[in-house]
């Protein structure tokens, strides 16, 4: 039992329990609290999987940004303290059963696959050279510069052969996402602008 295993177990348990508590709890702010626990532990799992940058983005955007926004919305839209909107028990039982069935289906599908040889199979099927030895994805989470260069359209991990070919990074998606964010910003500001409440 080394340190990695201890933390993996810890984060796994808290992520799964957090997700379950989100489903079970009825108060919206408590849901948000459990969602923080869940997403925070997921960020921890990303750090363990040597994806430091993704983990930090998860903390900054999801937990520090999106969830704060959610709680703001809860406060702006609740008509009384600790608002609860109950779901009928029949629906809960039905949803729980379907959820369990779905979980078993996903797990059965996942355990039925041999994950060991995926690398070579991906390489065969897609005719991409697997990454050469110069790039080690697990290099202690130092993935910041490769990610940045990939977003600029260069692929350091695919070696020199890939640059200039079909696999030239993610410059176009990056630009599309940035324009998309601008559109969303304008759209959200337009939708949420202060209007006089309709007299009802």
């Amino acid at each position: 039992m080394n340190g990695e295993a201890v933390f993996f177990t810890l984060f796994t348990v808290s992520a799964c329990l957090g997700a379950l508590a989100v489903v079970v709890s009825q108060n919206v702010v408590r849901m948000a609290f459990w969602l923080i626990i869940c997403l925070g532990s997921t960020a921890g799992l990303f750090f363990l999987a040597d994806a430091d940058f993704v983990g930090a983005v998860q903390l900054l955007i999801y937990v520090g940004g999106t969830l704060v926004l959610l709680v703001f919305a809860v406060m702006l839209t609740s008509s009384g303290p600790y608002v609860k909107i109950e779901t009928s028990p029949g629906e809960v039982i039905l949803a729980g059963m379907i959820g369990l069935l779905f979980l078993f289906m996903v797990i059965a599908a996942q355990t039925g696959i041999d994950w060991e040889g995926t690398g070579s199979r991906i390489a065969e099927a897609s005719e991409i050279d697997p990454p050469d030895g110069t790039f080690d994805t697990g290099a202690e989470g130092h993935t910041l510069r490769p990610i940045g260069m990939s977003l600029l359209g260069l692929r350091p991990d695919r070696g020199a052969a890939a640059s200039g070919t079909l696999f030239t990074g993610y410059l176009l998606p990056f630009e599309i996402v940035s324009v998309h964010l601008l559109v969303v910003l304008v759209g959200a500001a337009y939708l949420a602008r202060a209007k006089r409440r309709r007299e009802a």
Binding site: V54, I61, Y62, I122, P130, T143, I147, D157
Partner: peptide, 21 residues
Amino acid sequence: RYTTLGIDGQIYSLFIIVLAA
């Protein structure tokens, strides 16, 4: 982390996080 997908998986998850926000 565990296959030869390399950095692509992380970049996809970055896009997902941004789009989710």
